[in-house]
Write a protein that binds this DNA or RNA. Structure first.
Length: 924
RNA sequence: GCGGGGUUAGCUCAGUGGUAGAGCGGCUGCUUUACACGCAGCGGGUCGGCGGUUCGAACCCGUCACCCCGCACCA
């Protein structure tokens, strides 16, 4: 006998083990002969990560699709794995070293540090994998991949070299987003804008040739800035060409305070007359816009900060070039050199004030770019970095979506994709880190770069380049030594997303021509959150198209972000994080999964209230107890059972309803309408099967043995099987457990539920619906009236069916026992007229009278009927208004008009009966 | 500034042309032999405001208000 409740914590690990032991999730398991493939690659979670609500949702949805398709007999692969998360992982390991008071990474050197990271990965990396297993994710874990694996690294090398040779990867000196804390460049996408309350400092720059007088505006030009410390690198002041206030000054020069550099006033449309003073200082080496202005006017790029964003002016040739020596300059160098950018800011403002160059300070709130990992303001910084020509790779990726080869669901995300792809910037892929794929570029003594898949090849190329001679792979070392060439490898590593972009094919074995690659690429759908469209979707599209010449996936399902119940994004700093593992502990993985699926409506974020998880845990218990009931009543599966051949009304009805539910669930999942699918199975299980079918079957199951009882037992078991299948993608644990349990009291199961065929086929026709609807109405109405009349459940009264049709009388006969039980009725009679002092329930087909003499307050019954009369008059009035509108009759579809007429007829008929019932009560 | 989304029951949310539903919560009753993580019943919404299209609008269009999210920029 099943326990009274489902103990998720006890059952889930056992079921997981059973799946593992059966290798149930290996690619192709359960596939029908000759089946099409169905592939999903997991968006690789970060190796340092642990399961958060976003992962829980993302993987629940993927698992639902995967389990569905596996049950439908497709050749399924769900490819799992992790990415190496360059910056995050390096930070984690460095923090650990610091906590253990070990020497830092620079002390131990690159090789030792990388070894430490691998050790860390082996010990504590990838905890998320086990957490995904707890969620029930049916990935082919035997194929788990890591972006730093040998095979995937090989793919990275191949891709880098090929793109380089095609001119799509290049090295360039430009401004990058520099993180002065982590000491690396980062890409645009890794920068977040944060609102900062700062100041706008207005500085007076003296005009060359005038005697500076703070009191005389004709002797200076005012520029406003939020970043005073960059003024040391100013190389111009820009004004708008049509700004009349300044036209006379264009072409003249100003002398940069504190430094003494003579810099031009240029006319450039970048300058906005509305902002600040209308004149803007230009620092090409420290601002992206200024960089462009500088290029237009041939200005020098003077970097005045070092990698840690400290002022670096002493011995800085660019800074000193053309600047006359002066005591003031010496003081500037002495005061500021080596100072942090924020310290320097204060000092510079003080010095400007001292010299009379500070006009005013305004409070100013603005968005300041911060590194998303390091959390400090990024510094636009002039360095050499490697770039991918993303604009070129984006072209075919845009076309794929435009031409429908890859479709976004919901469709409106296409716009976001286009907007980004059409304005895409060069992708900076080099990172000044140690953990990651080291860039396969070697430099010769004169700085010539040799990009190759291995050091050996690089030497071959170098020897060819420098000496025009050939070397073979076997002898290159010798040759290299003899040639005296020494190559130095580029220190930098690649952006983690560079390797993630190859994920849909690198995990399948590319660049080798593996059978898996041939079979499972392209994949069917990528399931991800919108915040990751740029990171993954776009880049996977670009790389997939370039190297495989086929889109990596045909659908991109973009799901919601999970927020807290107030709608705020969950974050550790806000402390509003709901931990999915805690929910699993408390309610079970099935309940969490079902909640997420039920709330995953398209195009809307999920505001998660934990109370809902509790509600769906109750749903699991409900199902559990329904099966327990079946067990207690001997509802064992019957191998010879044919759902098409049942004769009992309730059996025929539930078999039809089950087929409808199957069709609804399947249709919804095929359209990625997870919430509709969840709602359909929920309604069927609870409101059809448990509330009505099981209740109606009780008289039969507790009655005498015979064909009706046997059929009902078999039907009940059959429907439970159908339910377990339909619910399995959503609630894999409890359904697998019940599949095994029900297998123990009927014919043995041939297979695990996860490898069992999904219910397919058309909705079964049945004539039983009218009869069951009638029955449900009768019972519901009686219950309602009883409650309204204040009758206790213990009070039993007879039921008298008055003026009913042949059909209704027959139905009454069939279901007497059920009505007695569910409506608490002592006996069931028919009559031509209602007995005196009855409550009279007006049905479409006759009156159900409950003789209540002495049991109930007749005034209350009169009031009830009067209320109903008023309501009916209301309805009739409303319909009359509609029907008397000529436009409605003329223009509305025929069937709608007919429907209204039929409704009216029904109401009129009821009204007559209600009035008759009232009349009868008058006599009592 | 550009773009996307939202505003429906006390709360969290479904519902894309025929006068509204779920879960949770509330109220009343129930030791009805599957389930109190339950059963039965009840209450609760002028579907953000205004205007338009339509025979008919929660739904389509316009507009206003408020909220959220991207992107860009900010001297």
């Amino acid at each position: 006998m099943l326990d009274k409740t489902f103990e998720a914590a006890a059952v889930e690990p056992r079921i997981s083990k059973a799946w593992d032991a059966a290798e149930a999730f290996r690619a192709g398991r359960g596939a029908a002969p000759g089946a099409d493939t169905y592939t999903i690659v997991i968006p690789p979670p970060n190796v340092t990560g642990s399961l958060h609500m976003g992962h829980a949702l993302n993987n629940t949805l993927q698992d639902i699709l995967i389990r569905l398709m596996r049950m439908r007999g497709r050749d399924v692969l769900w490819q799992p794995g992790l990415d190496h998360a360059g910056i995050a992982t390096q930070m984690v390991v460095e923090r650990q070293m610091m906590e253990r008071q070990e020497p830092n990474r620079r002390d131990i050197g690159r090789q030792a540090f990388v070894e430490k990271v691998w050790t860390w990965k082996a010990e504590s990396g990838g905890t998320i994998v086990n957490q995904l297993k707890r969620l029930g994710a049916s990935c082919d874990w035997s194929r788990e991949r890591f972006t730093m694996d040998e095979g995937l690294s090989k793919a990275v090398l191949k891709v880098f070299v090929r793109l380089y040779r095609e001119g799509l990867i290049y090295k360039d000196k430009r401004l990058v987003n520099w993180d002065p804390k982590l000491l690396t460049a980062i890409s645009d996408l890794e920068v977040v804008q944060t609102e900062v309350k700062g100041h706008l400092w207005h500085f007076r720059y003296p005009i060359d040739g005038e005697v500076f007088d703070p009191e005389n505006p004709a002797t200076f030009i005012v520029v406003a800035t939020t970043r005073p410390e960059t003024m040391l690198g100013d190389t111009a002041v820009a004004v708008h060409p049509e700004d009349e206030r300044y036209t006379a000054l264009v072409g003249r020069k100003v002398r940069l305070p504190l430094v003494g550099r003579l810099i031009p006033i240029v006319a450039d449309e970048y300058s906005d007359p509305e902002k600040g003073s209308g004149a803007v200082k230009i620092t090409p080496a420290h601002d992206f816009n200024d960089f462009e202005v500088g290029k237009r006017h041939g200005l020098a790029q003077i970097s005045v900060l070092d990698v840690e964003a400290q002022v670096a002016v002493a011995g800085n040739e660019d800074f000193l070039a053309g600047v006359p020596a002066s005591a003031e300059l010496d003081r500037t160098v002495a005061d500021f050199h080596g100072k942090d950018r924020f310290t320097a800011r204060k000092l510079i403002v003080a010095r400007m004030e001292e010299g009379g160059f500070l006009e005013k300070i305004e409070p100013h709130t603005h968005q300041v770019p911060h590194g998303d990992r390091g959390g400090v303001p990024i510094e636009p910084y002039l360095t050499d970095q490697w770039y991918v020509n993303a604009a070129e790779l984006a072209k075919p990726a845009i076309a794929s979506v435009r031409e429908g080869r890859t479709a976004f669901v919901p469709k409106n995300w296409e716009k976001t994709y286009y907007d980004w792809m059409e304005n895409i910037q060069p992708w900076c892929i080099s990172r000044q880190l140690w953990w990651g794929h080291q860039i396969p570029a070697w430099y010769g003594p004169d700085g010539t770069v040799f990009v190759a898949e291995s050091e050996a090849e690089a030497y071959v190329e170098a020897i060819r380049h420098y000496q025009g001679s050939e070397a073979t792979d076997e002898t290159f070392e010798v040759t290299a030594k003899l040639s005296g060439i020494e190559l130095t490898r580029d220190e930098d590593v690649l952006d983690t997303w560079f390797s993630s972009a190859l994920w849909p094919f690198s995990t399948l074995g590319w660049p080798d021509e593996t059978p898996e690659l041939k079979r499972y690429y392209p994949t069917n759908v990528l399931v991800t959150g919108f915040d990751i469209i740029f990171f993954w979707v776009a880049r996977m599209m670009m790389m997939g198209l370039h190297f495989m010449e086929t889109e990596p996936f045909s659908d991109v399902y973009i799901h919601a972000l999970v927020r807290d119940e107030k709608g705020a994004k969950m974050s550790k700093s806000k402390g509003n994080v709901i931990d999915p593992l805690e929910l699993i502990d408390e309610y079970g993985a099935d309940a969490l999964r079902f909640t997420l699926a039920a709330m995953a409506a398209q195009g809307r974020d999920i505001k998660l209230a934990t109370s809902r998880v509790g509600g769906y845990r109750n749903f699991a218990t409900k199902l559990w107890n329904a099966v327990r009931f079946a067990e207690m009543n001997g509802c064992a599966r019957d191998a010879a059972f044919d759902p098409a051949a049942v004769t009992e009304t309730i059996n025929s009805w539930i078999v039809t309803e089950a087929s409808k539910a199957a069709a609804d669930v399947t249709e919804a999942l095929d359209a990625y309408r997870f919430n509709d699918a969840a709602a359909a199975i929920y309604r069927f299980v609870w409101n059809s099967f448990c509330d009505w079918y099981l209740e109606l079957s009780k008289p039969i199951l507790t009655g005498e043995d015979g064909p009706a009882k046997a059929e009902t037992r078999a039907t009940c078991a059959y429907v439970i099987d159908e339910i377990l299948k339909l619910l399995h993608p959503f609630m894999p644990f409890i359904t697998e457990e019940l599949w095994a349990a029900t297998g123990s009291w009927g014919p043995a199961r041939e297979n695990l539920l996860c490898l069992t065929r999904w219910p397919e086929g058309p909705v079964r026709a049945s004539a039983a619906a009218d009869e069951i609807n009638w029955l449900v109405d009768v019972i519901s109405e009686i219950r309602s009236v009883r409650a309204e009349m204040g009758m206790t459940p213990a009070t039993q009264v007879p039921l008298v069916l008055v003026g009913a049709s042949e059909k209704a009388r027959a139905w009454l006969g069939t279901h007497t026992a059920a009505i007695q039980r569910l409506a608490r009725v002592s006996e069931v009679l028919t009559a031509d007229a209602a007995p005196p002092q009855s409550a009279q329930i007006v049905m479409a087909d006759g009156i159900v009278a409950l003789p209540l003499a002495g049991v109930v307050d007749l005034d209350a019954e009169r009031a009830r009927l009067t209320k109903e009369e008023a309501k009916l008059l209301d309805e009739i009035g409303r319909i009359d208004k509609k029907l008397s509108n000529e436009q409605f009759v003329a223009r509305a579809p025929e069937e709608v008009v007919e429907e209204e007429r039929a409704k009216r007829d029904g109401y009129v008929e009821r009204l007559a009966k209600v009035r008759a019932a009232l009349e009868r009560l008058k006599g009592d």
